[in-house]
Write a protein that binds this DNA or RNA. Sequence first.
DNA 1: CAGGAATAGGGTAATTTGGGAC
DNA 2: TTTGTCCAAATTACCCTATTCC
Lengths: 66, 66
Amino acid sequence: MATKSPDAQSLLTPAEVAALFRVDPKTVTRWAKAGKLTSIRTLGGHRRYPEDEVRQLLAGIPQQRS
Amino acid sequence: MATKSPDAQSLLTPAEVAALFRVDPKTVTRWAKAGKLTSIRTLGGHRRYPEDEVRQLLAGIPQQRS
DNA sequence: CAGGAATAGGGTAATTTGGGAC
DNA sequence: TTTGTCCAAATTACCCTATTCC
């Protein structure tokens, strides 16, 4: 194939996010359920998390909190 | 160098769809087999996926709550 | 036609989901 | 209030070879 979209890797797996935050994948799932993390689901039901959002959270940027 | 049209991206290859969903190309094939994705087959048996459908799935999956 | 890269297919291991409880 | 771990089931990832695509 020739047409390669510039946007390739922008989603992270639960294990990736969990490793980044040093928590269990289960905890990441809870964050997604609580609406603290934007989650995109695969057709099989697994979640994928935007890398941009995770990076912001990792950097300590409060989203909208007093 | 493959001949690519400037604005004729109607079908995506398994690798493209896999990159968009951050999954394995094999997984995309399973989605097609399961009927979750509309698949167009080439004469040789390779699958091709409509970009419109893929993008809609990426952005508009019915959000499932616990 | 030849060649490199990608894809299909099957099978097995690893990960993820979901809920409830401590 | 939040996090980690238990369970069972489903989904996904990686291994291989042959075929197809450009």
